[in-house]
């Protein structure tokens, strides 16, 4: 029992430490969309659970190889422990409960980040991805451009498609990505929350120029956006 108490104490210490580190280290990029906020909350929970499980296993492992190391002259065997039904049930059922809870929470967040905003009309942007460039069409304004300009705090629905091979639409600050697939239309909803300049990256290998398939993204105040729209050729 002495070993178990020391181990429990060490695990408690190490996992607390790791959780604190994971919560405070800035592991993800700037949050620049409402969707990114929801995703980051989920990340934080996943990292904390990971920290605890990692601590349990690592501390047990290191403790064992230090404390239960064979003495040089000892050729004997350890105790013939073949198993422990209660312990085995515990480490089957608790992880089961954790993953079920995570799956439910994950499903709720997914519903949240894919739902259309009901309060405001959505700005529609049709995105065509081609080897190796992006094109953005704003049907509500009748313009098409090669850079993405959006008003801050307005919900946007992207309708994506690929014109040749599969590409993928990803702005890391917005977190969620979606493939642009030839022959079909995929949908991605983003509400940008932070004025600034970002970069759209193609995240699906699409051939020679894949690494360089970027497009500039600007999130601006509503008035600036309308001015920008006016300045675009129809």
């Amino acid at each position: 029992m002495k070993h178990v108490s020391i181990l429990a104490l060490l695990i408690a210490l190490v996992s607390t430490g790791l959780v604190v580190v994971f919560q405070n280290a800035h592991l993800t990029p700037t949050v620049a969309a409402t969707q990114a906020l929801a995703v980051d909350d989920l990340f934080k929970l996943e990292f904390s659970i990971a920290a605890v499980i990692l601590s349990i296993c690592l501390v047990t492992l290191v403790y064992s190889i230090i404390v239960f190391r064979r003495r040089a002259d000892d050729e004997g065997d350890g105790p013939p422990i073949h198993g422990h039904t209660f312990l085995e049930a515990i480490w089957t059922l608790i992880p089961l409960a954790i993953v079920v809870a995570l799956a439910i929470y994950g499903a709720l967040v997914l519903a949240d980040i894919t739902r259309a905003a009901s309060s405001q009309p959505e700005l529609e942007v049709k995105v065509s991805a081609s080897q190796w460039s992006w094109r953005f069409e704003y049907p509500q304004y009748g313009i098409a451009t090669s850079q993405l300009e959006l008003p801050v705090n307005g919900p946007v629905v992207f309708k994506l498609h690929g014109t040749d091979v599969i590409h993928s639409f990803w702005v890391p600050e917005w977190r969620i990505k979606m493939d642009a697939v030839p022959g079909m239309e995929t949908v991605l909803r983003i509400t940008p929350t932070k004025v600034g300049k970002y970069k759209l990256l193609c995240a699906e290998l699409c051939g020679l120029g894949h690494a360089f398939m970027e497009a500039p993204v600007a999130v601006v105040e509503e008035a600036d956006f309308l001015n920008w729209v006016k300045a675009q050729p129809k």
Partner: peptide
């Protein structure tokens, strides 16, 4: 993750109280 966890925890329990030769 559940059966995978069973493996890892069982390995750790195998080391526990053993006479480990590194």
């Amino acid at each position: 993750a559940v059966p995978t966890g069973v493996k890892i925890f069982s390995w750790l329990a195998t080391l526990w109280m053993g006479k480990i030769r590194l």
